[in-house]
Structure formats: C-alpha cells, structure tokens
Amino acid sequence: MPKNESDPEDPLELNGVALLTNEDTHGEMVVCFTEEFMRLGYNASKILALFRDPFYIGPSMVTQEKGEAFVHDIISETFKAWNRECDLTPPQQPQAEDLVP
C-alpha cells in the first residue's frame, strides 16, 4: 500500500506553485547560457534571439524579469572576455509609439 496519498495541502508538493526565494541568480544564468552557446559556435545575435524566444523558458524568463538591456550587456561582456567579436548593436530605447498603453 502506498505510504501517502497525494495531498494538495502538502507543503512538499511543488507542482503548480510558485517558489518564493530571494536568491537572484539571473545574471549567472545568462553568463552560463551565453558561454555554452558561444562555445558551440553561436554568434551574439543568435544567442540574444534565444533569450527573446518565449518557448525557451529559462532564458526568456530572465528577459522578462530583467529586461533585454540586462541580457544584452552580459552577452557583450562575455564575448569581450572570450575575445570574440560581438555582432550586437547597442539596445535601442523604446519609442513612444512602441509603448502599448
């Protein structure tokens, strides 16, 4: 007989709940993904495209939480540190007509 039936009140049950934590590791996450894909041969603009892709949940979470400029800066710094050419142009400030009310 099973030990316990699944209980929606069980505090150990993490499916379908938000995890509360103050630990912000978004920066390290961006560095890691950037270095991994850079070593695979991706250029900077292709890597930035991954962070814009809503179907790539980890990177897109960082973009939504921190904004694209945050991601852009880390990708540029990482490429510079690894002595690689970064083909990203500086992020543009959103124009007034781009802002949805």
Partner: peptide, 25 residues
C-alpha cells in the same frame, strides 16, 4: 498553473492569454 491550495481541480490561472512563468532559478 496548478490549483490554489484548498481548491483541488480548479486552475488558479484560468486565462491562457497570460500563462504564468517561474520567477526564479
């Protein structure tokens, strides 16, 4: 997008237009 505690079977986030995502690592 699971149930809220105490409301088994009822999705806490019913709108598919705004799918919630994790906020952390």
């Amino acid at each position: 997008s699971g149930s809220e505690k105490g409301h088994r079977g009822q999705l806490a986030f019913s709108s598919g237009a705004n799918t919630p995502q994790h906020k952390t690592w």
